[in-house]
Design a protein around this nucleic acid. Structure first.
Length: 458
RNA sequence: GGAGAGGUGGCAGAGCGGCUGAAUGCGCCACAUUGCUAAUGUGGUGUCCGGGUAACUGGACCGCGAGUUCGAAUCUCGCCCUCUCCGCCA
């Protein structure tokens, strides 16, 4: 018996999706069992898991899981015993005189057949159990407010006031047109709807924001990374996006079992999968700039205008891998939230922070804070950042562990937050910093990245 | 894409059908010893599942999966990955 860290954990997304397609055959190089979750926790706290799912407005068949678990363990004992007998007999045969061997070997055959039958039963139980476990939602933290959808998210604070203008403000689309900064039509011609081309100063501004965000995080001790954005299906499962999020990801065809990531969170968090890190090396803080790809399936007719909802954008993402300590993780959660707030304040943008309610939470997170930045053309705050805390959910799936000072091996805790997502930052910058003549004020920290320019479009 | 080689414990590296969960070295831990450091000696040192309060104990794991066999790290097949050479290419 080992480590019984009394922590929660779990797995899997809400929609049933194609979990069949995600089975062992798609997980090369790793034993199927490893990224399955903490069955022990579910066994010991079934009601907590059920209540957690209910809070997230999700369903999961805990009773079926417990039933399978019990059968699995009983069967496991039987199989272990049979194998023990088989091993003993095998050794006896090895030592027996040559002429006695055929008879002894013959006697082993029935045991072998029984064993095989039991193993097959074991396998089918494992498969069903594994599939169900992948779908168990992580138990939300106590700090998560109750609620059904984003309308029930709780505002924690508002920083700055919605920008007021003494002229009729333009939308980022209008500004883009005025300065020939944005070509939506040709973007669509090149790549379909929800695609765009940034031109001239706007393209430079994008680069400036991304670089500023990256430098800000590096100055805070985060290690910059350049990571693959095309990853294995396995990596998507490990980070909790699959099963359930298949429709949101672009996938390569059968020649390459790869997916385009929707965020650098995926490759960064999975960087140390299957490793046992030295606890003294934690926390590991990473930041990466990457392209992000989102299919936006099921959003037809929603946010169809402009840069708000697009298929591809650039994003600087921060990720922390840390020890399994709830209080510490909560503190880190607030820290990464603070990092993003610092960026918004430096860019002189008004925003608010909300504590996402249970019903608006995904299956992997135990808590999420969203930052919404004021967007004049929407007349409201629009989501620009999302800070998530996962407990050991992702680490379990990724088999990401560390050895603590006490010598014990535990799963890490993982957290991540946006630092800056290009398109939504551009909307906020353009619209909040526009002047009466259509020029755009450049916040001080961005100027070094724009050759010292104090404003664009003039 | 073509041709070879290979994937074994934290690392290096043996093993090539039973006595191997795995030699040996390094690293690490403990104890001993030397006036500190270094050196030396002895012992220990993987992960996962299950049973037991515990000491302890059954089983699995030598890239992954399937197969042959009474028995596989060792043989066969499929897959993944790495390295070298050639070709192609930003």
């Amino acid at each position: 018996m080992r480590d019984r860290t009394p922590t929660r954990s779990s797995h899997g997304p809400p929609s049933l999706a194609s979990s069949a397609a995600l089975r062992s055959d798609v997980h090369p190089g790793r034993p199927q069992e490893t990224h399955v979750l903490d069955l022990k926790f579910i066994r010991q706290n079934p009601d907590l898991v059920k209540a957690g799912a209910a809070k997230k407005r999700m369903t999961c068949d805990v009773d079926r899981i417990l039933d399978l678990d019990e059968r699995k363990r009983a069967l496991g004992q039987r199989v272990d015993e049979m194998r023990s007998v088989q091993k003993g007999a095998g050794k006896a045969i090895a030592q027996a005189a040559a002429e006695e061997r055929p008879a002894l070997a013959e006697a082993q055959k029935t045991l072998k057949a029984d064993l095989k039958g039991a193993e097959e039963e074991q396998k089918s139980i494992d498969e069903e159990l594994h599939g169900l476990l992948l779908l168990v939602p992580n138990v939300p933290a106590d700090e998560v407010p109750d609620g059904a959808d984003d309308g029930d998210n709780v505002e924690l604070r508002k920083v700055g006031e919605p920008t007021s203008f003494d002229f009729e403000p333009k939308s980022h689309l209008e500004l883009g047109e005025q300065h020939d900064w944005l070509d939506i039509e040709r973007g669509a011609r090149l790549a379909g709807s929800r695609n765009y081309v940034l031109k001239g100063e706007l393209s430079l501004l994008e680069g400036a924001v991304m670089r500023f965000a990256l430098d800000l995080m590096v100055s805070k001790g985060f290690t910059p990374l350049s990571v693959p954005t095309l990853v294995r299906t396995e990596t998507m499962v490990g980070t909790g996006y699959f099963p359930g999020g298949e429709d949101q990801a672009y996938r390569c065809d059968e020649r390459d079992e790869l997916c385009l990531v929707g965020t650098a969170e995926v490759p960064i968090t999975a960087l140390h999968q299957d490793e046992i890190l030295d606890g003294a090396s934690l926390p590991r803080k990473f930041v990466a700039l990457s392209s992000c790809y989102r299919r936006e399936a099921g959003t037809y007719g929603k946010d169809t205008k402009g840069l708000y909802r697009v298929h591809q954008f650039q994003k600087v993402e921060q990720v922390i891998l840390d020890v399994a300590d709830d209080a510490n993780s909560l503190a880190q959660h607030h820290a990464i939230l603070g990092n993003a707030e610092e960026l918004l304040q430096a860019l002189e943008l008004p925003y608010r922070v909300v504590n996402v309610c249970g019903g608006d939470l995904g299956q992997p997170q135990i808590q999420k804070f969203d930052i919404e930045t004021w967007m004049p053309s929407r007349g409201s705050y629009g989501e620009t950042h999302s800070a998530s805390r996962f407990h050991d959910f992702q680490a379990r799936r990724l088999n990401l562990r560390y050895r603590g000072a006490d010598g014990k091996v535990r799963h890490c805790h993982t957290l991540n937050n946006t630092v800056a997502a290009s398109t939504r930052m551009l909307i906020a910058l353009l619209e909040n910093h526009q002047q009466a003549d259509g020029s755009v004020h450049v916040p001080e920290p961005l100027r070094p990245y724009l050759g010292g320019r104090e404003s664009l479009g003039n």
